[in-house]
């Protein structure tokens, strides 16, 4: 009984919609067979040096902004250096030993893992949920989408500032709301209250990004596949799990990497603004610790060692993702 109308509304309404307003969705399956012809477009260079010349600007940018600073960080991490650069003494692996041996560093690493896992899972989950729901909306769809996407335009420090106001101990509306439920929320004093606020703001900031990608991913799924799925399976959730989700896998995999990187690095501004420049006993991530030791404390060697550790972690994480996860992703 309930399946009947859902079936009818879903189908005839969707099909013309995708055809008229989304020509790309319809065009894509038709373009596919043509792919094998593409190699013919490959450019042949007469001189072997010419391609390198074209590559040079890009390589120069990567070298200047990535390899060179990375090499410098690795070098600095083996030295104990005077902040003003008057002298540096070689200390071998001491900086690494100091960082990894410190209980405080391990505590921050633990929080960073938890924070990254929660922020990634929540922003991917919510992004997907909103995308699926927005994909189904027919009336006023552009309004809903714009409303959901607009948050992405907020810069991280501004997001942090908004979070700071919402969770302010004296005037924060969220704190007043929490008090209604008997929760004496103390952001800036209680470790987990602060963590809650940080995660909430970081997720809020990232959901629109995931939403955009999931939505376009959903719209790329051909209407014929959806229709075939509807015939095969009545249960909406199973249909989503067995037909839609595998087709979204390439998007989800890309977003997973992006979101982990976001949680590890880009949340810095949110955290910095929310702890008001005073880490104290507030939860912070490893990147904030690098900043705090290097730029606030002027301990260049120590913070360089920490950033090398972080670099290795991210490298390892990305390798694992590409080796193990990507195998299970099917690019249609």
């Amino acid at each position: 009984m309930s399946m009947g109308p859902a079936f009818r509304i879903d189908d005839p309404a969707k099909a013309p919609m995708t055809d008229v307003t989304q020509p790309t969705g319809a065009a894509r399956p038709r373009r596919k067979p043509r792919r094998p012809a593409e190699p013919a477009k490959r450019v042949q260079f007469d001189r072997p040096l010419l391609p390198w010349l074209f590559l040079l600007p890009q390589l120069a940018v990567i070298f200047v902004f990535f390899y060179w600073p990375s090499a410098q960080a690795i070098t600095s991490s083996f030295y104990l250096e005077d902040p003003f650069g008057f002298g540096a003494s070689f200390v071998g692996l001491d900086n690494y030993r100091d960082a990894l041996g410190s209980a405080e560093y391990r505590r921050i690493a633990g929080f960073t893992t938890l924070f990254t896992a929660l922020v990634t899972a929540l922003s991917l989950g919510l992004g997907l949920l909103f995308a699926v729901k927005a994909d189904k909306v027919i009336r006023g769809r552009s309004t809903y989408r714009t409303a959901l996407i607009s948050v992405y335009a907020v810069a991280p420090p501004v997001a942090g500032l908004m979070g700071m106001m919402l969770f302010d101990q004296h005037i924060g509306p969220f704190v007043t709301l929490a008090a209604q439920f008997g929760w004496n929320m103390q952001v800036g004093i209680n470790y987990w209250d602060t963590a809650f606020a940080m995660i909430l703001v970081s997720v809020w900031k990232q959901v629109p990004y995931n939403f955009i990608f999931f939505l376009s991913g959903l719209q790329g799924i051909p209407a014929s596949v959806r229709e075939a799925a509807v015939i095969d399976c009545k249960n909406g959730f199973t249909r989503f799990r067995t037909a839609i989700l595998p087709l979204l896998a390439p998007t989800a995999f890309f977003l997973l990497i992006i979101n982990i990187t976001y949680a590890l690095f880009d949340t810095f501004a949110v955290i910095d603004v929310m702890v008001k420049d005073k880490p104290a006993n507030n939860p912070i991530t490893l990147v904030y610790k690098v900043y705090n030791d290097g730029f606030r404390g002027n301990d260049i060697g120590g913070s360089a060692a920490q950033s090398v550790i972080l670099m290795v972690v991210v490298l390892g994480l990305t390798l694992v993702q590409f080796r193990w996860l990507e195998r299970r992703v099917h690019y249609g």
């Binding site: 004093i189 005073k278 880490p279 104290a280 006993n281 507030n282 705090n292 030791d293 606030r296 404390g297 002027n298 301990d299």
Partner: peptide
């Protein structure tokens, strides 16, 4: 490194 020592003090006071 006193600015960093202050960070430790702040953490412990909290």
């Amino acid at each position: 490194f006193y600015p960093q020592i202050r960070v430790i003090e702040e953490r412990e006071f909290n």
